[in-house]
Design a protein around this nucleic acid. Structure first.
Lengths: 225, 225
DNA sequence: GGAGAACCGTAACGTACGGTACGGTTCTCC
DNA sequence: GGAGAACCGTACCGTACGTTACGGTTCTCC
């Protein structure tokens, strides 16, 4: 994968994001290359799309989380940071465009675009978060039987219906400045469900049912990500 | 909208579900009608798709929930039944195919397919569930400030990443027999987050952190939907 | 029973687009 | 400097599909 080829794939991503029709001619013109070169490098249109999806997936490999000192506060912060990061990714125009393409292809006949996005999206995320959850369980901070269930609950609390709404064109699904607040809300709710209660940070209200009432002071972002 | 026209739209749905290419010729052949009739009735291909989406939306109008006696048990059952019903809908081949089409169209230029699905899916669901939640709050069973936030938390707990995974072609996203158990798990978690604790059903374990541990006896479906 | 509308089946048209071919230019290597 | 590879731009080909047109059949209404 040369530099030039990566530039071509970035051109494909740009076209996807702009919503322009994704024809080979448009890609060639946008990337200032010939169609012959496209076919020589990527085989056919499907190969070009597959390479684009892989290329984008390889760019989202950032942000590993250290697990040295594992108290409840550190785990909370790690989870909240992960949640905010992930929300930012799925709300990005690139992710939306890419998922739209993959979903379209999953609809028609056999194309592994969907499984590629799935493997590099959901499953890769799980492989990064689950160790954090299990470390929290071993440290006595979290309590759950099935890691997969706990992980998917976390995913649900963080993402809710944001992704599907964005894919359907609802741009109000996530407010730009609310991502970090949403990440903290989801993390608080997750700890209410799965936390053991040991060494939880002090709360300013004493409601026994967790974080159901959104705390108004949350707007000030006491816990900076 | 005559009977014959509805039959045509059902043919479109059938083609969608089978994943066959959705050409006007294929629709005409499947519905045993002429292409000229298709254009006369629906204008163009987009009009046919729009009519199909509306037709399907009009068929999912089932299942209103009574709110006469509103104790915690009744609310729990209503929410769990709603959750199971909704999970069944979004996991159905028709819903998956329809959402794929709508998402594809939302990607390219202005087409309101996405907003139609959005209006008849997410938003319509909210209008049915939110009154239940608010009734529960007025009865002192639930506690929350923002109805929308509580509703979206419930949606997230129920759906998690099921829909996006199904759209991407992951058929293992939801196990056929697990829908009702999932609905109850989500409802339990929702009550842990937003319940006031008044008149909650007795629990067989005394873990203070809610339903984090999945209870093994749950497999027997004590609470039948 | 006949006129007209509605509709079916099929043929035909035009365009868009995936894929290929080719001349011209630049770069590499000897 | 020259041979060859790599690549750009463009023209070209074949097919798929949206859309229109038309002959033939059935149904409606008087």
């Amino acid at each position: 994968m040369t530099e030039r080829q990566q530039a071509v794939l970035d051109a494909v991503l740009a076209l996807m994001v702009e919503g322009d029709p994704l024809t080979m001619t448009a890609v060639a013109r946008r990337a200032s290359c010939s169609k012959e070169t496209l076919y020589k490098w990527f085989g056919d249109r499907d190969g070009l799309l597959t390479a684009t999806v892989r290329w984008q997936a390889s760019k989202v490999r950032a942000g590993n989380f250290d697990r040295q000192q594992l108290d409840a506060r550190a785990l909370r912060e790690s989870l909240a940071r992960f949640a905010a990061n992930w929300l930012g990714v799925i709300a990005s125009p690139t992710s939306i465009a890419l998922n739209r393409i993959a979903i379209s292809h999953a609809g028609s006949k056999e194309s592994n675009l969907g499984s590629i996005v799935l493997a590099n999206g959901r499953l890769a995320i799980g492989e990064r978060v689950k160790p954090m959850l299990e470390a929290g369980r071993e440290a006595g901070i979290l309590a759950f039987d099935d890691t997969e269930t706990a992980f998917r609950t976390f995913i649900g609390l963080v993402g809710r219906d944001v992704q599907i709404r964005l894919l359907l064109g609802d741009h109000r699904a996530v407010a730009p400045g609310e991502i970090e607040a949403d990440a903290m809300r989801a993390t608080d709710q997750f700890f209410t469900l799965y936390g053991t209660g040991k060494s939880q940070p002090a709360r300013e209200d004493e409601a026994p049912s967790g974080t159901g009432r959104s705390r108004p002071a949350r707007k000030t972002h006491q816990r900076v990500l």
